[in-house]
Design a protein around this nucleic acid. Structure first.
Length: 628
RNA sequence: GGGGCGGUAGCUCAAUUGGUUAGAGUACCGGACUGUCGAUCCGGUGGUUGCGGGUUCGAGUCCCGUCCGCCUCGCCA
């Protein structure tokens, strides 16, 4: 059957909205054929789908004009049709699985708007989800799935709530450029060649950071933008090279005002989207988060807290402990010098639940974070047994007291430099929580992590790096220390705290920001410490230094990761699920087959020559990309 | 750049130690059927086991390379 070019039937209802009270009324529906149940010459059932749900259509020879049942007989999955008929209470009894399950539409008029080829997979079949590769290749089918429609709509809801919330507080949305100057710090830039200026390049923005600061200097007062950002680094389950930020900045504020505003936004979001009342956020310093959880974005939905037992470990004869404690000797806080530590966490009831197989796996697991292993032991009424029990026997009483150990617990140890030890145990803590199913459903553990160090020092390149970014202000009480410090005052500089903050929920960083530097001398000092010479700073950030010269208000802000917010609100573990057209791990869009080669003429315009040896074998790529 | 897992019918998967004609469910095609809703029943089509090479009497299975996808370390101011 050929389909029509235009529909003469106009929808009067969506497929998910008809109820028993509509029985007796006429209705016109349009949508996709989800499913057909063909009872032969006289009776056909079709489930018609749109983004709102399903309605059962009945084509019954006894109730329908001649020819319609025969036409319905030919309908297949994903055909697009419009139907007109009468709503009635179902003859065959209700289907409790459907919201529309008490009614059906008796079809009197059928229009086939588009026949569909047999689809590679059926969006209506939630039981039998195809592989993600296929879903991405046929994203138009994948997005028809009710779950994906829900995500699209959740995402819309989030941006809508954001715009309304901040508009009510006097924020204005301002667009900033996508063709930007490349910046030296931070992630790898995506570059765009300039046609008009041969050999020069734009960079796509990693964030509108400097533009929004300039807007504060320009008197915008309160700025917001929902903007795309680009970082040319390898993706992860929660990270895409191209992602979206809800970007915000406020003038004449201190940290407290920013945190209050942004916390109110997050709570509004959870209330509006999920109906969840989020209690006031906890706050935790970066140092405390690292000490207790081995992470700057701790998941507070469960315990398994890390305890420093270095002093007790020093009393044992265990070589692993002794060697760790000798690492990176020096004075000062362990976090700034990576001094050797021994830490441990208690797994309540672990003696029974943590099998040998699991704990052996943990030893392997921590190796990927640079740790040598993860010694374990079990707690008994008398002391310890198995694992490293005999080594820690001398400190039995003290260890039990320090960690609150109970018989039946397992203790997992880590011994290394502070950074490695914290990272390894922090990651292991999360793994144990998952393995033992300690994470309750529908728990929301929000917190602010504050008081980050300004700098970290990289031994390989022998220089400081900004932990957040180079425009983050030092905490007010640290400014003088910073200004008077010399680059060689390493202990002092590594101890300087910034006025930065991260919003964290369930172990995931969903927003990060800071009070910015609004004083030119402070900004210059930071550039200097980061190894940017005066000339270089002027060349790369002259516009910022100039702007700071002409009257900059104190300001600060935050950027939320929109994709991650939606992940949490939609309950998905994968960032690709909340992006309509995401890319794979090799940066490919499987539907459009981007990236692609371009014409010689285009390259010539852009003054670009591709080095042949580095071109990927296109034949092989195309062959496996198109199995059909 | 490193580590791990995967790729078999349109789709989801199976195939003993390397051994006969690579199977099942579903989809698709044909037929039957007037109350189904994962419809049912009968019959049928459908495969260069990602690609290339190697070992072997014999490879979906073993080896090497490569491509694609996922997880991850590095990276992500």
């Amino acid at each position: 059957m050929s389909s029509t070019l235009q529909t003469s039937l106009q929808r009067t209802a969506a497929c998910g909205e008809l109820r028993i009270e509509h029985a007796g009324q006429p209705a016109t529906l349009a949508g996709w054929v989800n499913n057909y149940r063909d009872h032969g010459t006289g009776l056909v059932f079709i489930d018609l789908r749109d983004h709102t749900g399903l309605t059962q259509l009945v084509f019954d020879k006894e109730d329908a004009p001649a020819g319609i049942v025969e036409a319905a007989d030919k309908l297949r999955a994903e055909d697009v049709i419009a139907v007109k008929g009468k709503i009635r209470k179902r003859d065959g009894g209700p289907n409790p699985k459907l919201p529309t399950g008490e009614i059906e539409l008796v079809v009197e008029q059928l229009e086939v708007l588009a026949k569909a080829d047999t689809p590679p997979f059926q969006p209506g079949d939630e039981q039998n989800l195809p592989g993600e590769e296929l879903r991405l290749r046929h994203r138009y089918l994948d997005l028809r799935r009710p779950k994906m429609q829900h995500v699209l709509r959740t995402r819309h809801r989030v941006t809508k709530v954001a715009r309304d919330f901040f508009d009510a507080l006097g924020f204005i949305e301002v667009e900033t450029p996508n063709l930007c100057r490349s910046t030296p710090e931070g992630a790898r830039d995506f570059l765009v060649p300039s046609r008009l200026q041969p050999g020069e390049f734009y960079a796509l923005p990693q964030s509108p950071q400097l533009f929004k600061q300039i807007l504060m200097v320009a008197g915008a007062d309160r700025y917001m933008q929902i903007c795309r950002c680009f970082r040319d680094e390898d993706p992860r389950a929660d990270r895409q090279a191209e992602f979206t930020q809800i970007d915000l900045e406020m003038a004449f504020v201190d940290r407290e005002q920013v945190l209050e505003t942004m916390e109110a936004f997050a709570r509004t979001l959870w209330k509006e989207v999920l109906g969840v009342e989020v209690p006031k956020f906890q706050r935790m310093t970066w140092q405390e988060a690292m000490d207790r959880f081995g992470s700057d974005r701790p998941d507070l939905r469960y315990g398994l807290e890390l305890v420093d037992i270095s002093d007790l470990a020093a009393k044992t004869d265990f070589k692993v402990f002794a060697q760790a404690l000798e690492k990176n000797p020096g004075s000062g806080h362990p976090s700034t010098r990576d001094g050797g530590v021994v830490k441990a966490f208690r797994v309540p009831g672990g003696a029974e639940k943590l099998t040998r197989k699991l704990t052996d796996g943990y030893a392997e697991f921590v190796k990927q974070f640079g740790a040598g292993g993860a010694p374990v032991t079990k707690v008994t009424a008398e002391g310890f047994e198995t694992g490293i029990a005999r080594f820690i026997e001398p400190i039995t009483a003290e260890l039990k007291e320090r960690m609150g150990l109970e018989p039946g617990d397992t203790v997992i140890f880590g011994a290394d430099g502070y950074n490695t030890c914290s990272k390894a145990l922090g990651e292991l803590r999360q793994k144990v929580a998952k393995d033992l199913d300690l994470i309750g459903k529908d728990q929301w553990a929000f917190l602010w992590v504050v008081d980050f160090p300004m700098f970290e020092y990289d031994e390989a390149t022998k220089r400081y790096y900004a932990l957040h970014h180079p425009f983050t202000a030092p905490r007010a009480d640290q400014a003088e220390t910073l200004l008077s410090a010399k680059p060689e005052d390493k202990q002092t500089l590594l101890g300087v705290l910034s006025d930065g903050y991260d919003m964290v929920v369930n172990g995931s960083e969903i927003g990060g920001g800071s009070i910015r530097i609004h004083r030119r001398d402070v900004q210059q000092k930071v550039f200097q410490l980061l190894g940017l010479g005066e000339e270089e700073a002027k060349a790369k950030f002259g516009f910022l230094l100039d702007a700071l010269r002409y009257g900059a208000p104190p300001h600060g802000g935050i950027a939320f990761g929109l994709d991650r917010l939606v992940m949490h609100l939609a309950g998905t573990e994968n960032i690709r699920d909340v992006i309509a057209f995401p890319k794979t791990q090799t940066g490919a869009d499987l539907m459009t087959e981007a990236p692609s080669g371009v014409d010689e003429a285009q390259l010539k315009d852009l003054h670009i020559r591709v080095v042949e040896a580095e071109v990927k074998p296109v034949e092989a790529k195309k062959l496996s990309a198109n199995p059909t």
